[in-house]
Design a protein around this nucleic acid. Structure first.
Lengths: 226, 226
DNA sequence: GGCTGAACGATAGGACTCCTAAGTATCCCT
DNA sequence: AGGGATACTTAGGAGTCCTATCGTTCAGCC
């Protein structure tokens, strides 16, 4: 009998991989149809959002690394954004070979519309209870971190992998983690994906943090209202 | 009052949205570099995996809907797969307009290599503790379900939204849910993304299930081993 | 100062993905 | 049988992404 699927029940990992892949496809597709805001191609939208989140401009290479695409690919997208007058190149004072990308006033307006509540992903996440959003945030960080470790992307400025990050160091249940830079406790919901103050941690420490964070489950307390 | 960014600290939702978007980009980029297996373009890989998971072939429209792309887009990808002799079209006995897509022997080999452990997403998920994989599975289902509700994708055969799904109906902690079709209890890790036996539930019931599942947090018991 | 190798980034050429619009064949309903 | 809806394909065009190559600049070295 040679059944096409060797096991009757696929493993949880396989199912999760399928789900994640499907979700990724939908997330990307979402960008084309964002109603209300101008329907931008997905990569362009992402670049605009990244620029909006970083006051003084970003280098092309930095963005390419964060998205896991080649410098050439990114150059394509930037070219279009420049043609549309949403992004401006300016010289990087620190490096004559590089240029800093900044939003123009028009670009800032577009970026604003993109990340306004009710747009894109935000609309999906609004359907989740708060505790789940925190859990999702933690999981995405772990996975992005894993991707980093495997050389798929590097240079992401997440709390995980930052030398100032102290997981479960505050003793506070609601805000268990600490940022050693600002000296303040914070919780899963406050984990940053692209923190301007980020400084990379030594490789060993980062993996260790990841393991500690991974072993925990967000505390049910925050769901009190069931 | 209409402030652009009301708070200096980004909300958890915005951070999660950023993380999800970044993760989606990485997930997609991953496909190009899968080492060991042939580096397939992401959409083609996804289609092959879907076909591998469904014994008797799928209709083009079904796949398009699951991926959230237009029928025309999907037709493009299928054309390439057929040219490469990995997929074969055969007549759908039930509908003369449609054709069923099936893997050829060669296609089956490729698909197998793609989903073998250690490939693609599986490698990322292997870094997570088991309980987190379960949590991720649940979250992806909720989000995919939310996407369905918003008309971004329909036709996905997830447990959520299936008329046989009974969340938290078994009383068993480890396997709290029930599938009314097979009459067996199962847990978060067993939730299906693309179940062949799926039958859609009435709209109201589905949303209700989603809410119940959303309100819960995976039980820490499954992590016993810290 | 001038040379060399590495790094940043742009361009060229090609493949893949995705869209809308329009066309063909089939199905289903009246 | 006729008419509208449905499944799918084709055509045309834009966006994304790759590798390979090139020009510029930086950093280290003579």
């Amino acid at each position: 009998m040679l059944t096409s699927t060797p096991m009757s029940a696929p493993t949880q990992r396989q199912q999760a991989a399928l789900g994640l892949e499907r979700l990724a496809a939908l997330v990307r597709a979402q960008s084309w149809r964002s109603d209300g805001a101008p329907p931008l191609p997905p990569t362009q939208a992402t670049v605009l959002r990244m620029l909006a989140g970083s006051g003084e401009g970003l280098r092309a290479g930095h963005i390419a690394v964060q998205l896991g695409v080649s410098a050439a690919s990114l150059s394509d997208s930037v070219k279009v954004l420049v043609e549309r007058k949403w992004v401006r190149r300016s010289a990087d004072p620190d490096d004559g070979r590089a240029s800093l990308l900044r939003l123009t006033a028009a670009g800032r307006r577009v970026a604003q519309a993109l990340s306004s509540p009710g747009q894109g992903m935000d609309r999906l996440l609004a359907t989740l209870p708060e505790a789940d959003v925190g859990a999702l945030l933690r999981l995405t960080q772990l996975l992005v971190r894993a991707a980093q470790d495997q050389g798929l992307a590097s240079g992401l400025r997440t709390c995980l992998g930052c030398r100032f990050f102290r997981p479960y160091a505050s003793g506070d249940r609601q805000k268990p983690h600490m940022c050693a830079l600002v000296g303040q406790p914070f919780g899963d919901p406050d984990l940053r994906v692209d923190c301007p103050e980020h400084e990379p941690a030594p490789a060993g420490r980062a993996s260790d943090d990841a393991r500690r964070l991974a072993a925990s489950i967000p505390s049910p307390e925050t769901t009190a209202d069931g």
